[in-house]
Design a protein around this nucleic acid. Structure first.
Length: 545
RNA sequence: GCUGGGUUCGUAUAACGGUUAGUACUCAAGAUUCUCAAUCUUGCAAUAGGAGUUCGAUUCUCCUACCCAGUACCA
């Protein structure tokens, strides 16, 4: 019988979740959902020294924002489950709370001769290392050195007994076999072989915090939680032989999960893995959500930078995986359907911030004008612009309707007005916040004029013409549409054989504060005759005529 | 150093051992427009190097180079 697919994402709460970590979680999630299996969260907090407050909550919130929802390990309130229930049978899902479980298994390994107690102090080990280094060698606690160290293999049994009872300091180490070839299979990399003689006697139980190391806790939990596939970062590949040996030592080979090691996310330029530094330096986030560390330093997040979670997830999915064809746009559902581990790239993928932006733009375009204006409202409000639901509400709010959708002076606009602005500026935006940069002057008169454009276009002879165009607009009494307004302006300029480009750019400068931007007809149509005239007057008086 | 992993345009990637080595992002040029953006068209640009296997190698094998990871009582 085919075994149920159960995969886990097992982060360590030592800080915010890196985007590479999100990708690992995503691939696990996609794999589980495609197979109709379970996606489990387990917190690997066996290093009491590196615990960072808030990191666990951050990780869960990040996954939640991305739409990566665990089946097991996290309850509906977003808390790690601590007591078993039908849905969460393996609780607690925090390794620090599972200590008694691991202890039993560690002792089992010793009883069966797969592990031993080691009494060497950190100082002794440090000394051994520096001595080795002095003679240009590396000290490794392994089959050749372990017989000259202080452990339960070298010390007489009564002394071992005494040390175990009387001192607090001992560790448990795995007794790595000599000259045995470990034959492993990786779902992404294929067959790998390693000789155990190149491996060391890894610590399984730490003296320092009296907790198991990752290696022990990980194998025990994956076994107990009936994990079918382990999909994790490439940094774990070197410890895969140890993990294979542990499964063998426990006699769990039959139910050992299959492994897939994902390549790392690399920095956009140069060599090396993507780090927080790269983000700071090149101006892009490396974390899904904004994070403020205990020292008070803040790191930007994709969410706060204005990325849509769908775009972020889509971009991340395509970094190191491809569907086998040219498709690039995927919803989470589509990813679940298309995902496949054998289409995952073996080599590390350099992250490209440009592509991330491109994805966001594509997703922004797919959103309805209504949804985008709803997202834009808070941005407008931050800039002192008030949005009301309907024309009637606008009137009650004190608007005078000097433009089609509101009151420019009182800065009150209807949602319909916002929507119409969104509709015709949509293709220029990458983020929702861009709408303000692109079209602030459709809500508020420009506060200043770009000097470069003033120098280029605000010439006395042109200003004179611009003011005449203003009079024409003021006197306009036809049907007030973008097209009619545009036609009237352009025909007037052409009829008088004025320099079209120069007049138009000066006009835009006066109305929008910049010579480049939206079409004149679009601007004039929305801000209305009165405001157009007022802005021209203002430009003439502040810039001179 | 040692052990393991990796290497197709600048980037992400495609190509049953047989293609003019494709696509997307970026960039450049042209078209369009009152400007900018958008859009459309075109273009630039890659199999790390060397042997071998084969009628034929991006694809298989070996060597070299380079990159990455691990080498903690961190995960």
């Amino acid at each position: 019988m085919e075994r149920r697919t159960r995969v886990r994402f097992a982060p360590s709460p030592t800080g915010p979740l890196h985007m590479g970590g999100v990708r690992t979680a995503l691939y696990n999630y996609l794999y589980a959902k495609q197979k109709g299996g379970d996606f489990i969260i387990r917190i690997e907090d066996t290093d009491s020294n590196r615990f960072v407050p808030g990191a666990e909550e951050y990780i869960i919130e990040s996954l939640n924002w991305c739409g990566i929802i665990p089946d097991e390990g996290v309850d509906k309130d977003g808390k790690i489950v601590e007591t078993p229930s039908p849905r969460h049978p393996h609780a607690p899902y925090r390794q620090s709370q599972r200590k008694p479980i691991y202890r039993k298994y560690a002792e089992q390994l010793i009883a069966n001769g797969y592990a031993y107690y080691a009494f060497d102090t950190p100082e002794e080990l440090e000394k051994a290392r520096s001595e080795a280094e002095a003679s240009k060698e590396t000290f490794i606690y392994n089959q050749v050195t372990r017989m000259s160290m202080r452990n339960s293999l070298t010390l007489p049994s009564d002394e071992v007994e005494k040390l175990l009872n009387e001192t607090t300091g001992w560790t448990i180490r795995f007794k790595m076999p000599v000259d045995t070839v470990v034959k492993m299979d990786d779902l992404i990399r294929g067959h790998i072989e390693v000789n155990t003689s190149t491996l060391d006697d890894k610590v399984l139980w730490k003296r320092a915090d009296e907790l198991p190391t990752y290696h022990l806790a990980n194998i025990v939990d994956d076994h107990l939680m009936e994990i079918s596939e382990v999909i994790r970062g490439e940094e774990w590949l070197p410890s895969l032989p140890l993990h294979y040996m542990l499964y063998k030592a426990f006699g769990w080979e039959d139910t050992m999960p299959r492994f897939a090691h994902l390549s790392l996310l690399l920095k956009p330029v140069g060599n090396g893995k993507l780090s927080k530094r790269d983000g700071d330096k090149m101006g892009f986030p490396v974390f899904p959500l904004r994070w403020t560390n205990p020292e008070g330093e803040t790191s930007r997040g994709y969410r706060e930078d204005g990325y849509f979670p769908e775009a972020f997830v889509n971009m991340l999915a395509m970094l190191g995986w491809n569907p086998g064809d040219d498709r690039e746009m995927f919803t989470m559902e589509e990813l679940i359907g298309a995902f496949s581990l054998d289409k995952v790239q073996k080599a590390g993928a350099k992250f490209n911030p440009e592509k991330a932006k491109w994805y966001n733009r594509e997703y922004l375009r797919m959103k309805s004008d209504e949804e985008l204006s709803d997202l834009l409202v808070p941005v407008l409000e931050e800039h002192g612009v008030n949005i009301v639901d309907c024309p009637k509400c606008a009137l009650t709010a004190g608007a005078e309707f000097n433009v089609a959708g509101g009151d420019l002076e009182k800065r009150i606009f209807t949602k319909d007005y916002v929507q119409s602005v969104v509709a015709f500026t949509k293709e220029r935006a990458v983020f929702v916040s861009d709408f303000w940069t692109i079209a602030s002057y459709l809500f508020v008169a420009p506060g200043e004029y770009i000097q470069k454009d003033v120098d280029k276009f605000w010439k006395p002879e042109i200003v004179e013409l611009v003011m005449k165009v203003g009079d024409v607009i003021k006197g306009f009494d036809g049907e007030w549409t973008v097209e009619s307004v545009g036609t009237v302006i352009e025909e007037y300029i052409k009829a008088n054989e004025w320099p079209m480009g120069k007049v138009m750019n000066a006009l835009r400068l006066a109305l929008a504060g910049s010579a480049s931007g939206l079409g004149i007809a679009d601007i004039v149509f929305r801000i209305g005759k009165k405001e157009t005239a007022a802005r021209l007057e203002n430009a003439a008086s502040t810039l001179g005529s």
